[in-house]
Amino acid sequence: MKSKHQRLILALAALVAIIAAGLLAASALKDEAAYFYVPNDVKTKGVEPGKAVRLGGMVEKGSLRHEADGVTIRFTVTDGKAQVAVTFKGIAPDLFREGSGVVAEGAFDTQGTFVASNLLAKHDERYMPREMEGMQYDETTHQMKGAPKP
């Protein structure tokens, strides 16, 4: 009986140590393993022009402009704290739209505009039927609010 307890304590201690080490390593990676920068990172840390990075955030409502050439689009990416102007030449994914998430791959030019070579659409964790679009999600009650569209 005694040896069984000894083994249990030893195994649990080892497990705790391993998990603590893993989590420590993961949290140390926190900044390095970020898949993309948000506009506020760009503002506070600065990204040198020409360096290939990913920029993620929301496409600001009302900011999307189509250029005269028909393939270039301009829009603003925001994270609520800072904004970055983005231009992209090419075909955007279906889910790319104003007010929705986006991850842009590319680099900053010398004027501070982000020139994207590829766009990825990022959706959030909300899933709902089409009829419910435009309704508001309540963070505290986890219910949808507002009347459905006619």
């Binding site: 926190k30 393993a33 970020a34 898949y35 993309f36 959030d124 899933y127 986890h142």
Partner: peptide, 18 residues
Amino acid sequence: WNSLHQGPSITMRGSTID
């Protein structure tokens, strides 16, 4: 980490999936 994958939909506090 900032990820392309969305955050958790089903948590202890409820679900954001209709």
